[in-house]
Amino acid sequence: MMNKNKLVKIIIISSFIIFIVVSYVLNFEQGIDIGKNFYEFSLNLILVLPCAFILIGLFEAWVKRETVEKHLGKDSGFISYLWAVILGGCTFGPLIVALPIAYSLYKKGAKLTVIFTYLGAAAICRIPMTIFEASYLGVKFTIIRYVVSIPLVILTSIMLGSYLEKKKFKIMKGK
């Protein structure tokens, strides 16, 4: 079942690539435009992701479970949310980069509420992106977004996380 699924996905990807190549050969404009989109997005990710995964690998090999547990685990206080926001702010790249990092933290013993806060923060307050945003939309816009969304992210993360923890929810990959 799983393999069949994978096969379908590989077929989709391969036919897409063939479509793009053929478009270039036959000078099919629509296909070339889509190909350009694909190239732009992939380039961005292909540069960031290997670095991110190498750093995750090093993190998992070096950082002790106890360290993560102490600062981000069940018995850590409110300051753990502050850590989560700072970590999120320092994350490079889109949400796709934050997801494996969050998973790693969870595996090392961080609590669910902190994980959700981290993901939210990584989505909304990455520092490089913020500078970019402020230059286009103005500082006031960015400040409002920060001041309103960060407390909301922390609040909803605590709600969602505690709800799931109460139900003895365990994250299992792929389920």
């Binding site: 992701l49 290997p50 995964f53 190498i54 995750i56 690998g57 090093l58 993190f59 998992e60 090999a61 070096w62 494996p100």
Partner: peptide, 11 residues
């Protein structure tokens, strides 16, 4: 090496 292996696997 362990870290690199994790990186490749996850990726």
């Amino acid at each position: 090496v362990k870290g690199m292996k994790i990186a490749v696997k996850r990726f």
